[in-house]
Design a protein around this nucleic acid. Structure first.
Length: 545
RNA sequence: GGGCCCGUAGCUCAAUGGCAGAGCAGCUGACUCUUAAUCAGCGGGUUGAAGGUUCAAGUCCUUCCGGGCUCACCA
C-alpha cells in the first residue's frame, strides 16, 4: 500500500491540500461505488500522516435533475422528473426535507460507517443560492463560444451555435433538465423550457429572459465541476474510470478549468472499479443482490482493507459467491495486523503493510499498536464454531486466547461472529457448512476402513456404558476408545465426521457429539460401523441418502 | 471506434530492471485432548505470443492474442 504515501510524498512540498469529491444523491449506494470514498479518505489520511495540512470536502450535487423514474411514485413522475433533486419531495415519509436530503443522508451515514468524515459537506443548492458561483456563471456565458469549441475538440460533442453553458430552473414548472439557453446579454439569458428536449422529462413550454444568478440556474456538470475547483481551491480529486477516460468528463472539465476559468485542474487519481466474479456489479444484471449484501458480511475495516490494499488503478475482482474469498480477506487482514503488532507471520508481506493496516482502521486516530495486538479469532474457525449447538463462543475464544477478552476484543468477536453468520447464510460454499446427517448414514461413511468401523462400534458401546454428557467427557471417551482399539486419533475423528457429517473433517468432535441426542449418537455409530452386534464381525454397510 | 486494467504455480496474487516467490488448495509425515488447530516436509512455471532496448526484462518499448471494464446524451 505504498500508493497513498507515495502520493503524499509527491505533494509534500506543494503546500496545504484540498481534497474533493462529490456525488449526486439520486439513489442507493452500492458497495462498488464505495471504493472512491475509501480512496479519497486514504489519501487524506496519508497526507496528514505525512505532515501535509489537508482539508477534505464532499459535495452533494443536489441541484442535478431528477432522472430516475423508478424511484418516484407513479403520480410524481410527470411533475417531478427533471426538477432539481433538492426540490423533489422525499418519497418516503421519514422526515427529510427533500428527495436529495433523504438520499444524501444515506450515503453520509454509509461514509461515517466506513470511518470517512469529510471536514465539510457542501450542498450545491446552497452554494448557488449564496451567489458564490455567479462570477463563474458570468465567465462561462461570456466564453460560451470557447466552451462549445472545447466540447467539440475534447469530446467530439457538437452543440448548436446558440447553445449556452447554463441550465435555467424553469420559473414556471421548476424543471432544470428540460431547459435550454440560447442567448445571453450580459445580465440575463434567454431560455426555453422544451417539452421534448429530453425523453425522460417533459418541459412546460415557458420561455423568456431571466437572470441566471443567485440560484436561478445551474451550470452543466463539466463547468460546475471546474467552477468548484476554483471556488474551493481543490488540489486533488480522484475519479472513477468512467469519468477519467480519454475525451470523457474529466478531460472536458480539465480543459474548461484551464481555458475558461484559467486555473490548473487538481491532481487526478483515476481508480478502477470493484467487479463481482469478473463482471460489473449491476442490479439489473442480477449481481446487485451480491453487491448489496457484501456490506453485511464484510465489516467496515475489512471493506476498507479490500479497497485500499491494491493500487487505485488496479481493478479488484471480488467473487464471494461459494468461495472462500471472504474468509481469506479476514485472514489477510489478520496477517497484516499480526505483522504490524510485530508478531511472526507466515509468508510474504507487501511493502507498506503497516500503513495498509493503519489506514484500514475505522478510527483515524486509533491506537494502532493496540488495534494490531487485539486478539481476532480466525474467521473460518469462528464460522465453524457458531454452527455447533451449545458452544459458548466467548468462553471458547477466551480459552484459545488464553486470557479474558478485552472489551474491544469482545466487540471484534461479536462483529466477526455476526459476519460469519451472514456469510454462512449467503455466500459460504457447502463445504463450510456443517449439517448433521440425521436421516441416514452419509455416503462418505462407505469408505470407512475396518479399524474405523471397529472404533465406531466400540464408541457406541462406550456411549451406552459411560453416557458422557459434556463435550470434555465425549472427547475423553473418543480418545479412550481410540487408544483401546489402537486407532490413531486422526482416523478416529475422521470416522466420526464421516458417520455424522458425511465429510472427512469437522469441528471438535466431543462438542459435536455432546450437542446430539445420545441415543442417536449410539445408533448412528453402530449403524455406520456395520456391526450388527457389538462383538460380531462387520456386515454390509447400509448407506443411505 | 477511443481509453484504462488484467494475463506469473490448480486458485488468489507478490516481485525500486538484478537468483520467479507467498498464501490457500494438494500430497507426505508428526500429534492422548484447539483435529477446518498446531508443527515439519514435498511437488508444482516456456511469467499469453513474437520482436526490440539492456551486462541483465515478469518488469521498459513495439506489434499481436485473450479476458474485463469504461466512454462516445446527461451527470
Amino acid at each position: 500500500m505504498d500508493w497513498a504515501d507515495e502520493l503524499a510524498q509527491r505533494v509534500r512540498d506543494a503546500g496545504p491540500q484540498v481534497v474533493n469529491d462529490s456525488k449526486t444523491p439520486s439513489g442507493t449506494v452500492h458497495v462498488g461505488s464505495l471504493r472512491g470514498p475509501v480512496i479519497l479518505d486514504t489519501i487524506v489520511r496519508a497526507l496528514r500522516a505525512n505532515g501535509v495540512e489537508t482539508t477534505l470536502l464532499y459535495g452533494v450535487d443536489d441541484l442535478d435533475p431528477m432522472d430516475a423514474q423508478a424511484l418516484l411514485t407513479a403520480d410524481a413522475v410527470e411533475t417531478e422528473m427533471g426538477r432539481p433533486l433538492a426540490h423533489v419531495p422525499d418519497q418516503e415519509d421519514d422526515g427529510h426535507a427533500s428527495y436529495a436530503r433523504h438520499h444524501a443522508q444515506t450515503f453520509i451515514d454509509t461514509f461515517a460507517g466506513l470511518g470517512i468524515h469529510p471536514d465539510r459537506y457542501y450542498w450545491m443548492s446552497d452554494i448557488y443560492a449564496t451567489g458564490d458561483l455567479d462570477p463563474f456563471i458570468g465567465t462561462a456565458l461570456d466564453k460560451a463560444a470557447l466552451v462549445r469549441e472545447i466540447y467539440r475538440r475534447v469530446a467530439n460533442v457538437q452543440h448548436p451555435d446558440t447553445w449556452h453553458p447554463i441550465g435555467v430552473i424553469c420559473p414556471t414548472c421548476g424543471k432544470v433538465g428540460t431547459t435550454i439557453v440560447t442567448d445571453w446579454n450580459g445580465e440575463q439569458v434567454y431560455f426555453e423550457c422544451r417539452k421534448d428536449l429530453v425523453t425522460w422529462a417533459r418541459g412546460c413550454g415557458a420561455s423568456g429572459w431571466i437572470s441566471p444568478f443567485g440560484g436561478a440556474a445551474k451550470l452543466p456538470w463539466n463547468l460546475e465541476w471546474a467552477a468548484q475547483w476554483s471556488l474551493f481551491g481543490v488540489t486533488i480529486e480522484p475519479n472513477g474510470k468512467d469519468l477519467s477516460t480519454a475525451g470523457g468528463s474529466r478531460d472536458r472539465s480539465d480543459a474548461i478549468a484551464r481555458e475558461v476559468f484559467e486555473r490548473e485542474p487538481p491532481l487526478n487519481v483515476p481508480y478502477e472499479f470493484l467487479n463481482i466474479g469478473g463482471k460489473k456489479m449491476s442490479t439489473s444484471k442480477g449481481r446487485g443482490a451480491a453487491a448489496h449484501s457484501i456490506a453485511e458480511v464484510v465489516p467496515p475495516e475489512q471493506l476498507r482493507f479490500l479497497f485500499m490494499r491494491h493500487r487505485p488503478n488496479h481493478a479488484i475482482d471480488f467473487d464471494p459467491e461459494g468461495t472462500d474469498q471472504i474468509p481469506r480477506l479476514f485472514d489477510e487482514f489478520d496477517k497484516f495486523a499480526a505483522a504490524t503488532a510485530g508478531r511472526e507471520v507466515k509468508g510474504e508481506l507487501p511493502p507498506g503493510y503497516e500503513a495498509t493496516f493503519r489506514y484500514s482502521l475505522l478510527d483515524p486516530d486509533a491506537d494502532v499498536a493496540a488495534e494490531a495486538a487485539a486478539f481476532r479469532p480466525a474467521f473460518g474457525h469462528l464460522a465453524m464454531l457458531i454452527q455447533i449447538p451449545g458452544v459458548d463462543i466467548v468462553e471458547r475464544i477466551e480459552a484459545e486466547k488464553g486470557s479474558p477478552l478485552t472489551d474491544r476484543e469482545r466487540a471484534l468477536l461479536d462483529q466477526r461472529a455476526g459476519a460469519a453468520r451472514a456469510w454462512l447464510e449467503t455466500y459460504a460454499p457447502e463445504s463450510a457448512k456443517l449439517t448433521v446427517q440425521h436421516d441416514a448414514v452419509p455416503p462418505a461413511a462407505a469408505d470407512l476402513d475396518q479399524d474405523q468401523r471397529a472404533f465406531l462400534a466400540h464408541l457406541a458401546e462406550a456411549v451406552e456404558r459411560d453416557g458422557p454428557a459434556s463435550g470434555d467427557a465425549w472427547q475423553a471417551s473418543i480418545f479412550a476408545v481410540a487408544a483401546e482399539d489402537d486407532v490413531p486419533g486422526r482416523r478416529a475423528f475422521e470416522a466420526i465426521y464421516r458417520a455424522f457429517l458425511g465429510r472427512t473433517n469437522g469441528p471438535r468432535a466431543g462438542w459435536l457429539l455432546a450437542s446430539l441426542d445420545p441415543v442417536f449418537v449410539r445408533e448412528r455409530a453402530r449403524e455406520a460401523s456395520g456391526w450388527t452386534d457389538a462383538a460380531g464381525p462387520p456386515g454390509p454397510l447400509p448407506v443411505g441418502g
